[in-house]
């Protein structure tokens, strides 16, 4: 989805549609919560719509020990509460602080935007994009939306900052933003960089097979050498004394 902040008027219809689609209590909320999978926050005269970014290489999917989170080819990052063990690593790791946890439950799950996966499967748009009256949120293929965003920026270079947020931030996200002011001023984290976060842990995890194989051979070798040394020492000691070596001491 492409979200053009210059077009958004802050009507909050997107949140209403989202709540209806997901059968959530219909109150207006300013921040993401268990009952708000999308929320509008205001910076000066700009409304910024927040929701799960549905990253191309999602951090949450990579950290989940039981693969309860998964990324579909069509875009959505889906969650399976039946698998979830409640380790909360996704809450800790998500660079956008998106997943919310059912802290008050004794069988807690996480909640977040589902990218209306059931609607997408039926060939429909996400509820928020369909409801948006101004076209601030547009749904489409990511490649086409990127072209459209680039076209808008080059057509009106004074209106937009020359950046499409989400194009390659943390490896690219399904949500793309256009803004008239630098994104850092809008509460977007500017320190995230372009490398997908999962690469950070992969650099450590990829060494596991090496540690196991090289380490195993090395430790085995050290044992063999030190063991042999003890055997030889015992043998030499017994030879000096002129005794017959015990059978187990024979090298």
């Amino acid at each position: 989805m492409l979200i053009d902040l210059t077009v958004c008027v802050g009507c909050n219809v997107c949140q209403g549609a989202c709540k209806e689609e997901n059968q959530l209590p219909p109150s207006e909320e300013k921040y993401l919560s268990l009952t708000a999978y999308t929320a509008l926050s205001k910076y000066n005269d700009l409304y910024i719509r927040r929701m799960c970014q549905h990253c191309d290489v999602p951090t949450c999917v990579s950290v989940c020990p039981v693969a309860a989170l998964s990324k579909a080819d069509t875009g959505p990052v889906a969650y399976d509460a039946e698998k979830c063990i409640g380790c909360r690593y996704c809450l800790q790791a998500c660079p956008y602080h998106v997943p919310k946890y059912e802290w008050s439950s004794t069988r807690p799950r996480i909640q977040k935007c589902k990218f209306c996966a059931p609607r997408l499967a039926k060939g429909l748009q996400p509820a928020c994009a369909e409801a948006c009256p101004t076209g601030a949120t547009v749904f489409g293929e990511r490649d086409e939306l990127l072209l459209e965003a680039a076209r808008r920026v080059s057509a009106e270079p004074t209106k937009y900052v020359p950046r499409i947020y989400g194009k390659d931030d943390v490896g690219g996200t399904s949500m793309l933003y256009l803004s008239p002011v630098p994104f850092e001023q809008l509460g977007f984290d500017a320190r995230l960089g372009k490398i997908p976060m999962p690469m950070l842990t992969m650099s450590a995890l990829s060494k596991v097979p090496n540690v196991l194989s090289v380490g195993g051979v090395m430790l085995g070798g050290i044992w063999w050498i030190t063991n042999r040394r003890t055997e030889v020492a015992a043998f030499e000691a017994s030879e000096k004394k002129g005794e017959t070596p015990r059978p187990e001491d024979k090298p």
Binding site: V61, S62, C64, P65, V66, P198, T201
Partner: peptide, 9 residues
Amino acid sequence: MWNPHSVMC
């Protein structure tokens, strides 16, 4: 339920 990308796993 494995996830080889997860340190936690």
